[in-house]
Design a protein around this nucleic acid. Structure first.
Lengths: 190, 190
DNA sequence: CTTGAAAAGTGATGTAGGTCACTTTTAGCT
DNA sequence: AGCTAAAAGTGACCTACATCACTTTTCAAG
């Protein structure tokens, strides 16, 4: 476990500096969790008690429309944060599903604990501020890509940006992330 | 000007508490700017020295594709923050345009000053953290709407969510925000 | 190594929404 | 009030992509 916590510390220290005492305080507010492939981290209608930092593994966050079709909001793997941020922030029931595409391990942070460490250790508030800002920028890029690009160029773009991801995820899920049908995506390569 | 700064303080205090001394310190790091309709706040290729809190007015943030078509990332009005967050954060040249749809006034915050007040006044770091988180949640919603909804229902959704905005913005810009052509949008009402 | 299920590929056909060209309406300036 | 330019509406036609139905390939579990 120490090695895993060290990874988390490194993740924080990529952005802000923490003293050993600060880190001891911070790390004591995380819980550990591990799940097998196909198990759910978050489900629609269930409480969302945590946001999760992924130690290892791969998950998908998605919602299901009236027709039963899956729409993928995010893939998240090692070193990513994932949650139903909306439900988590407002402590409401989940609005999306998050489940594991591979066996996965997480460090879990409750809202109460997050606010505690943010108000106790300013560097942590700055860490989350900067992280959140990066996330915002990424989503803006994705919106632009949905507005400006064809399905095919969105696919090429993703191939370049996250080649590793494509290896680990079935194409039909990539299609659902790009907002295109499985069949259409399949016709792109050829 | 005092009244305008008071508005800004209220904006901060909706989320965090600040002492008078803290506020004095914080407010001294903002600059005031005012622009007429059609003037640019940010331009592609130009330095992005600030992020802007809108005291009054309305702006659009957009990019222009190879075919010269405009794609609107965001409308922002009173009490909103706006910038080219990506360029601002990395101090790179602008990647989008932001211009005024109405005469507008802003408080401007440089990156240096933002980091200064965030590291000096922890409440401010928490303010931006929480704000940024809200922004992230909004963008996620918009991505979901682009993935799951038809152009028509996205329009209806927007009509319900921001009726005031529709009054102030020409429909062709709404179309560009929704990712639909002007002509198609025009056929929805009828 | 086999086998059953999930994933991927493929053809035929349907449709939401785009594009182009033109008309009508609205709104800002002098 | 009168004029110009931008905005909005509309018809005809086009295309990217969806959907459906089916086949082939891949892969994991016994």
């Amino acid at each position: 476990m120490e090695d895993k916590l060290l990874l988390l510390r490194q993740h924080f220290e990529e952005i802000v500096s923490l003293t050993d005492e600060e880190w001891d305080f911070v790390q004591s507010h995380f819980e550990y969790k591990s799940l097998k492939k196909h198990q759910f981290l978050i489900q629609v209608g269930q409480p969302v008690d945590f946001e999760y930092w992924i130690i290892k593994g791969l998950v998908k966050a998605y919602s299901i429309d009236e027709k039963g079709k899956e729409h993928i909001l995010q893939f998240a793997m090692e070193d990513y944060w994932v949650s139903d941020h909306c439900a988590f922030q407002h402590q409401k029931p989940g609005t999306i599903f998050v489940d594991c595409l591979e066996d996965s391990e997480f460090f879990c942070l409750s809202l109460e604990n997050r606010e505690k460490i943010c108000f106790e250790v300013p560097a942590v508030a700055n860490f989350f501020r900067i992280k959140s800002n990066h996330g915002y920028i990424n989503l803006q890029q994705r919106i632009l890509s949905l507005l400006t690009m064809t399905a095919e160029s969105r696919y090429e773009y993703l191939l370049n940006k996250l080649p590793k991801l494509i290896q680990r995820v079935p194409k039909k899920l990539i299609a659902s992330y790009l907002g295109v049908s499985r069949e259409t995506l399949s016709r792109f390569n050829s």
